[in-house]
Design a protein around this nucleic acid. Sequence first.
RNA 1: GUCCCCAUCGUCUAGCCUGGCCUAGGACAUGAGCUUUUCAAGCUCACGACACCGGUUCAAAUCCGGUUGGGGACGCCA
Length: 432
Amino acid sequence: MIRVRFAPSPTGNLHIGGARTALFNWLYARAKAGKFILRIEDTDQLRSKKEFLDEITYSLGWLGLNWDEICYQSQRFSLYKEQADKLLKAGSAYIEKSPEGAEAVIFKVSHQKIKVHDLIRGEIEFDASNLKDQVLIKSDGTPTYNFACVVDDATMDISHVIRGDDHISNTPKQVLLYEALGFKVPEFAHLPLILGAEGGRLSKRTGATAISDYRKMGYLAQSLVNYLLLLSWAPGENREIIGLSEAIKLFDIQDVNKTAATFDLDKLNWFNNQYLKKEDPQKLAEQLMPFLIERGSFGKDNPDQAYLLEIVKLFQARLNTLNDFVDWADFFFLKEITPEPQAQEKFLSADLSKEFSLFAQRLEGLKDFDISSIETSFRELIKELGIESKKLIHPIRVALTGKTIGPGLFEVIYYLGKQRTRERLLKWVKKS
RNA sequence: GUCCCCAUCGUCUAGCCUGGCCUAGGACAUGAGCUUUUCAAGCUCACGACACCGGUUCAAAUCCGGUUGGGGACGCCA
């Protein structure tokens, strides 16, 4: 039975790197009909916080990485004590007293060569002569990371330890402990790290690191998972758009690359655009609601769902994030708009009173207020005025939307409605 | 400093194990064009890489060695 675990410490949010580690563990368990265990490494009682724990479990769930078992190291302290005593009795560990009288348990490192088999990298050899004796139980009575990790992985029957590259140097220390405790050494697979754009670790400076930040920016869980999946792994055949269920069929931990990958927001944006385009507009509208309400562009009192749905369809293909919709479509929901200064400067500084009022009149007189009738009447007007269509289209767009970019003008007019179109046009007509 | 890991377009990667099908394929980004009513989307095209040096071989991106470069770890943090 394959049993893998993801072991976050609740001293911070779930970040990109952690999520990828969780994803590969989860995938391997699902691909091999094994178990995926969530182990909370909360031995540091000062830095561990409930809010981080909640954020981590929420984010894992949001990504779709469900766990079969969960356990907390803080509830297993007696087990670590017990195992430390075992080593003490066997003479492979000793007690060190601090000047204040506190006692710590230290592991005697035997000087030998240690071979570690890694599923991704093959054999890695270490010389334990480079290692110092290892603290097992700190003087405050809590276990150290390497010790708790080994005791847990062994007693929880973890068959494969899949974790970040940064743990490679912990591995020989842990192997020594497995052997001293008489436990079977599990298989190891060390995943390459995800690097920031400037090389080096992903950090706040190189972009957001918390999964919840990406959720708040309006990325879909599917996009993030799909993107993370393709960092250091590829199914071949030039396949890129791969969902979780499809990935289960294709994934094997041994196919993971050895090379560190750089996190690239542009590619994530592309994935998000792909998924956004395919999403059911109704579902998209539902997901958009919290974003719209938070931004205040959408009243909570009377959200017109049917209207929102139409507007969503108008923008769907051009969104990179859900936030883009909030930024770009606000003029459909706001009562009053303020044009962007540069847009106003460029397209509304000339006096277009005559053109605007003529067009407003035509729209007013339209029998059928549908997209093609609106366009026909506009085309007729510019023909009569003898001007180029774009000379008028851009100023009208700015007057109606406040922006220079957006959906086609005639769709904008249609969905804005006669009333609001007229009001926004006449605002720029000088009374003589 | 010591130890460890890694090395194909700017980025993610296919190919590497099992040398020849590689004039190295795809995607993102970038540039150009089509369309046009702006921005997207879409379509077409372009740009662009086997880090270097040696070895093995009839033949090396692929196997071996070294150099260089990048990354990681060296806590009574996890």
